[in-house]
Design a protein around this nucleic acid. Structure first.
Lengths: 191, 191
DNA sequence: GAAAGCACTTTACATAAGTCAAGAAATGTT
DNA sequence: AACATTTCTTGACTTATGTAAAGTGCTTTC
């Protein structure tokens, strides 16, 4: 658990005192599989550090299909930024894919940190920049790589997802039909 | 020009005094077509408000092809966030698609505003949230919509791009081959 | 003002991925 | 344990998009 906070709040400006204050505002939450951290239509009031388990973000497309837009693995942050920081209802759902243990920090508590600590502001801005970078990289991958390359990439860099998420969710995350993913898996096993 | 600043720095927390100070730190720059605002490998030192003209972001994929990742239209901001705020070399290029007039603000000047004005911090965080939201929406569109729907969507909501960018750049932005875009255009004219 | 170079279009063909439907396997429920 | 449900696989067929190559028409340039 200590390791979790050190991994996530990893910024040169943080002092030990900062860290103690930050950690003290997080609350441990146990989540059963399939439970929600945020439902569409509601406004986010917290973000979450994932200690154990797998989390996903999904939206409904115009046909009502669920599209998984993000997977959040252990030692990562689940934060629906546009709802939390613009204080507007979310179009995304955040759901536990497996049973999970997470640490929650409420918006008001974070606001307090953000307004009183320079280090938190810098950390926050860099975290958002990194998010933007990652999502940009993912778009580029979607454009330039084939479905099977994208799957292999996931296998290599985010194996937790392959192991714990159902095929249908992975397929929608990769932007392909679930039958196609099934076929891709078969080819990989053969070769 | 006044309208440009009002559109971009549009946040309830800004006072007239804030606005005057902010505007005073921007410098007008004239850009010839094809000139660069940022080149890959260099670290961004400013961001830009676009008064006139069209700007694009692009990267090179592993085959050396240019992939246009963003178009920035008039009254929008061109900011390579991960390079500017994480102070690391950019993998993206920012280039003027047409002759352009932009207003530049240097990183140090922005840092000054950011550290001294609460309103700038809130504005900045909301702007980044909005960016994340937009890029997320674009990913979803890439997954769920056909190439021609995506093109029609661009036509409807960002006509400046269709009018001013060459076909090849639009095609890579939509994630399709330029011959495919040419076909799509033909079908649209016929129907 | 002819040549060269771009930007775009068109054609023929190849291929990745989608759709639909059936069945197998796994999981959850009483 | 038996049933119902969900998840995953497989097959046959369709379709959107990619590839390669040739052709058209504009600009740019010397």
């Amino acid at each position: 658990m200590d390791q979790l906070f050190r991994k996530i709040y990893n910024h040169p400006l943080f002092t030990s005192t900062d860290m103690l204050e930050i950690v003290s505002l997080h609350k441990r939450v146990i989540l059963p599989k399939n439970s929600f951290l945020l439902e569409e239509g509601k406004t986010a009031n917290a973000y979450y550090l994932i200690e154990k388990g797998l989390i996903r973000f999904y939206v409904h497309d115009y046909n009502g299909n669920e599209i998984t837009t993000q997977f959040i693995c252990e030692n990562e942050i689940a934060n629906e930024v546009s709802s939390l920081f613009q204080r507007i209802p979310s179009i995304q759902n955040i759901q536990a894919v497996t049973d999970a243990v997470v640490w929650k920090i409420d918006f008001e508590d974070f606001q307090h940190l953000y307004h009183t600590m320079e280090s938190v502001r810098e950390w926050g801005r860099e975290w958002m920049s990194a998010q933007l970078f990652q999502i940009q990289q993912r778009s580029i991958e979607m454009i330039t790589q084939s479905a099977s390359s994208r799957y292999l990439h996931l296998m290599e860099y985010r194996p937790q997802i392959i192991q714990q998420a159902p095929l249908k969710q992975i397929a929608s995350y990769l932007g392909i039909a679930d039958t196609s993913l099934s076929r891709i898996r078969k080819e990989i096993v053969v070769s």
